[in-house]
Each structure stands twice: as C-alpha cells, then as structure tokens.
Write a protein that binds this DNA or RNA. Structure first.
Length: 475
RNA sequence: GGGGUCGUGGGGUAGCCUGGACUAUCCUAUUGCGUUCGGGACGCAGUGACCUGAGUUCGAAUCUCAGCGACCCCA
C-alpha cells in the first residue's frame, strides 16, 4: 500500500517533499511563467486566510490597519543611505508610463519604510499623536538573484505584514520591539510552531536599524528559517524624513521608530515543521477543513447513512467547526489518503455499523482511532490535537538544538541542526566560527533555556566571557 | 557569484547517445456509462504532450546556438 507509484517523497528528503507537498496539497502552483512568482491555490489561500486572520486580530488590539501605495518615487526611496545600500541590488523599477519614459522613476516597494514615512512626517505633529502604530498586509517585490523557493524566497512576497510605529523616546520604541516579539511568540504558539528569538549580529541587521530582533524556526533538514523580525530604527528614518513632534515644552523633537514584519514564510513554517511522510499536518487553528466526515455508503442503507452524515455535519457547523462532508464517488480509503495529504486534523467515519451502535469513529491525523458518542465531543478532540501537534513540533526542534562548548561540537551540530554556544561578541571570533564550521552566526543574545546554559561561559574562540549565540545554516 | 543536471499530455516517466518505422511508451490524472464502496476499486469507450526562437538537414522530440524556466552542489 505504502509503495504506490504516487507516494510522497519522505520528509527526510526535505527539498523534494516540500516541492511535492505544495502541489499535491494544493497550496501553491509553481508553474507561473516568471521566476520567483507563484500562485496560491484556493486551499493554500484558505490556510493563509485563517493564519492572517489570527495575526490581524492579535495586532488589531493595539494597532490600526491601513494600506500605502505600491510605488515609491525615486527621490523618497533614495533618501536614507544605509537603507538604499541594503536594497539597491534588488529593487524593481517602473521606468515607463505607456510609451513615454517617466520623469521620476518609481520603485516597487521591497518594504515600505520610504512609502510610509513621508506621510508620517505629515501626520505626526505633537506628542499627543504618539505612539502611532499602523500595519498593512501587502505584496512587496525583490529582484532575488539566488534560487527562489515558493513561500520562502520570492520575487513577489504576496503577504507581507509590516507594522510601523512612532514613539517619543528610544526606550519606548525598544519596549515596542519587545511587544512585537511578544505578539509574534503568541502568533507562532497558536500555529504550534516553536521559535528561537535572538538579536541579529550588527552586520546582519536591517539596513537603517539600531538593532534587529529575529524569530527563527528550524526546518526538518536542520536549516533555520527566519519567520519574523522586529527592528528598532532609532532616529535613522525620522532624521531623513523629518518626522518630529512637539513635546510638552513646545520644542520639536525627533521621533523614534520601529518596524516589524512577518511574511508568508509563516505558512512555509507551518507546512514544514508539522508535515510528515503522509502529507500536511495542519493545526486546527488554521486548517481550512478541521473535520472531514466520510460516509461509509453501502448499498441498501445509503440514504440512511447520508441522512445521518448530513445531521452530523450541521451539528458540527453549529459548533463553529470548519467541516466538510465528502460525498464524492470514491472508495473511503481513497478519501482517507486525500484528506490526510491535506492535513485535516480529524476524520469522522460514519457507516451502518456506527448508526446501529449510536457511535462515530474518530481518527486524528496521527491515525489514532477512537469511538465518540456525538458531535459535542469534537471541540475537545480538536484542542487535544492542537496541543499534540505543538508538543510534537517542540520535541522535534529540541532534537535539532545542540549546546556546544567547542568549535568541533559546533561543526558537528550544524550538519543536522543548530548550535548554541558562547560568543564574546567580536566580529573576528564570529568570522572564525563561520569559517571553521561552514555555518553562520545567526544570532546573539539568544533568549530562553538553551542560552541560559552557556551565558557567561568563555567564548568558543577567544575564551573571554560571552553570551549564548545561535549558529547554523539558514534558508 | 561559480559549477553541474535537466525541460516530452495536468503530474511522474520511456525514447535522444547513433536524426527517418514516433501514428511518441508506461504509471497517474481526467471525461462518459455500468458494476462497486469499513484504507489508494474494476470493466468498456474516450481526452490529453515533444519549453520558445534561430540554425544544420531531403527530414529534428533527437544535433548546434541563444533565450526562458526548473532542480542540485559549491562560495
């Protein structure tokens, strides 16, 4: 059975698995005829919709949603020197309107700082206008020259959630960065995706930021995926875009800013972190179909089974559950495979035997089977599944993190996962770590229990006192 | 940035080296009808492809060049 010709590649062959799952589970169609641009299938878009709705409701508590233009005039884009340097290689330019060349060429936003901040300069007048916290969910464009990958490295990021805030003081902005990380932690928790939070080394921070805090997860092949960042912009942009406010004393002051973003990489992380050799495994929180009902239709009792299935379906809908009644003319087994591939958390089977015994067969995505009495038991089952998926992902990530005290240990660790080791903070030592391990120093001041085990230890290179750093290969 | 492999129905492939018999193989998918249905059903009848352009040639899926695209490895 398992070696049918159309078997999915195993997760251990992650690259092949990832490409196959996107097509077979109908998430992205990669056949659009431009490199780096991909199309959302409706099923994939539905995952996106539920995921971004959660993100929206987290942000809406304390932010306002908006939309700024896609096109940024040359003269605004070119204002902030570090920012330009960071992006100039990968900006798409609109140079023509019809047949005539434009006087002012227009950039397709690679990110929206330079679209938003000229307006912030107009909107921010007084300390009473602050803090200002806006976000938008938009597409952005980057002319990637490396090999592109659906949901991970794109030329059109279709789902960039970017928040931009303005504050009176540096400390308040720093507090907002922490708030962003708190929101992102909560977001990823509800996706069951475990994360590592660290500060990017200075040479790897956002162009035009004082510092960058990053959120990473670990993919099945041991490489990390950056799935969120929060930047303290200090006054880099407020200086160049003249974003000032009048303080209590009537003096004009430069504002402090932050920005933080999440892209459809969050979807890539859900797919990759949870998926198995059978297909997708979706947490109920974002599964387009949380429960599928498979009627077991046998000859004479067909109508009876269908009626019972319809009743069960409407009961579940009444409980607010996203349920699908699969009435297609296929063998039940074929339907099981189909919905397992699509990551449906819970399957209910209903046939003559169940009707006779007054029960329903419930099978979770990990193929654990049990009998339940009624639809009322389903919400609790879904909660259990959500928890089980989360715990499984956490255990899996735990197995990919190694606490290291020597360069040799790091070298071995990064072959199949990430290393956490003490680093003094000096660039020279980081360069040596990278050169000798064939991996990157991804983060410093790593947070959480892993870092605590190495904080204060001597740097793996120079022996001076250091703090927990995250070392690994990344996407 | 450097190197490699490759592009054949919707997906996966055979054929290519050695140009002609290719009316292009097989699996899957898909349409219609019938029989089926508790873990990927079966029968019958259908649908559906040589990436684009230029070249070589009597003749190109097959050889050459370019473009576009995909995947893998290294920095």
């Amino acid at each position: 059975m398992e070696d049918k010709t159309d078997a999915l590649p195993p997760v251990s062959d992650f690259s092949a698995w990832y490409n196959e799952i996107l097509r077979r589970a109908e998430i992205m169609d990669v056949r659009y005829p431009v490199k780096g641009l991909y199309v959302w299938y409706p099923f994939g878009f539905s995952i996106r919709k539920h995921t971004y709705n959660m993100l929206r409701s987290l942000l809406d508590a304390d932010h306002q949603e908006t939309i700024f233009p896609l096109l940024i005039p040359d003269h605004e884009f070119m204002k902030e020197a570090e920012h330009i340097k960071g992006f100039e290689e990968e900006v798409y330019w609109v140079t023509h309107g019809g047949l005539s060349e434009l006087d002012v060429k227009l950039a397709l936003r690679p990110t929206s700082e330079t679209a938003i901040y000229p307006m912030y300069a107009l909107w921010v007048r007084s300390h009473a206008d602050l803090p200002l916290k806006l976000y938008q969910i938009v597409n952005t464009f980057r002319y990637e020259t490396k090999h592109t990958r659906p949901l991970i490295r794109l030329r059109e990021i279709t789902s960039f959630k970017e928040a931009h805030t303005v504050h009176c003081t540096w400390d308040e902005a720093a507090g907002q960065v922490e708030e962003a990380i708190r929101l992102y932690s909560q977001f990823y928790h509800s996706l069951g995706v475990p994360i590592l939070v660290s500060k990017r080394p200075d040479w790897d921070k956002f162009p035009g930021a004082d510092y960058t805090i990053a959120v990473d997860t670990i993919m099945p092949d041991g490489k990390t995926l950056q799935i969120g960042t929060a930047h303290h912009l200090g006054t880099h942009f407020s200086k160049t875009f003249n974003i000032t406010y009048e303080d209590l004393a009537g003096e004009q002051q430069l504002a402090y800013q932050t920005c933080y973003g999440i892209s459809e990489r969050c979807i890539a992380s859900v797919i990759s972190v949870h998926g198995d050799d059978t297909g997708l495994v979706l947490p109920p929180s974002v599964a387009p179909v949380q429960v599928v009902i498979i009627p077991i239709i046998i000859g004479k009792r067909k109508d009876e089974v269908l009626a019972a299935a319809e009743t069960l379906c409407s009961e579940l809908k009444g409980l607010g559950i996203r349920v699908e009644l699969d009435l297609r003319d296929m063998r039940p087994g074929a339907k099981y495979y189909h919905w397992e591939l699509h990551g449906v958390p819970l399957r209910l089977e209903l046939g003559p035997r169940d009707i006779d015994s007054g029960t329903i067969v419930a099978v979770d995505r990990f193929k654990q089977k049990q009998q339940i009495g009624s639809a009322a038991e389903v919400p609790a089952l879904l909660e259990e599944i959500q928890k089980a998926i989360t715990e499984r992902a956490e255990a899996s990530m735990e197995g990919k993190i190694a606490i290291c005290t020597t360069i040799e240990e790091i070298r071995t660790a990064v072959e199949s996962g990430v290393a956490v080791a003490s680093w003094c903070g000096e660039r020279d030592c980081a360069d040596r770590i990278e050169a000798e391990t064939d991996a990157s120093l991804l983060g410093r001041e790593l947070r959480g229990k892993h870092a605590e085990k190495v904080n204060g230890n001597s740097c793996v290179i120079c022996g001076r006192e250091g703090k927990g750093a995250l070392i690994g290969r990344s996407y």
